[in-house]
């Protein structure tokens, strides 16, 4: 299942896991993270594509027919990579427009409520940026 429904099912699944299982699932996503293709954007990435407030230095790009893609420049930004992979997997291709319907609290449902303020803000801004890019492309 892809799109919003698939994401919500993933969130529900993660909420049912214990901490170790949740971390294992999220790090699996982080390992699957693929940065934005060089054919779309190369380094140094444009400042206008930078996700505000994300200390992992994340850039977001709207790729026609592919959806929102991210570049996470901080090698220790594992949570950012996990979220990038999740958003890319669930909202690719035909599902790209559904990203606008992602609820704001999805970060807490995916990662749990024990995030630091900075971490939660950065991840929420990734979601907000992806939604804004999708909306602007209409």
């Amino acid at each position: 299942m892809e799109g919003l429904q698939g994401l919500l099912e993933l969130a529900e699944s993660l909420e049912s896991l214990d901490r170790a299982e949740r971390i294992e699932t999220l790090t699996d996503y982080a390992r699957r993270y693929q940065p934005v293709p060089e054919s779309v954007a190369g380094k140094p990435y444009p400042e206008r594509n930078k996700v505000p407030g994300c200390e992992s230095e994340v850039y977001a790009f709207l790729v026609p027919d592919s959806g929102v893609r991210f570049a996470v420049e901080n090698r220790q930004g594992v949570s950012a990579m996990a979220l990038a992979a999740i958003l890319q997997e669930f909202f690719g291709g035909a599902w790209a427009n559904e990203i606008e319907q992602v609820p704001d609290e999805i970060v807490y449902r995916l990662f749990g409520r024990e995030l630091s303020m900075g971490k939660s803000m950065g991840l929420m801004n990734m979601v907000a940026t992806a939604k804004a890019l999708a909306g602007a492309a209409k």
Binding site: I23, E24, L26, T27, A30, Q76, G77, V78, S79, A82, F111, G112, E114, L115, S116, G118, K119
Partner: peptide
């Protein structure tokens, strides 16, 4: 760490 996933990686 601040990032709760980092240790496990």
């Amino acid at each position: 760490n601040e990032d709760p996933l980092l240790y496990s990686t």
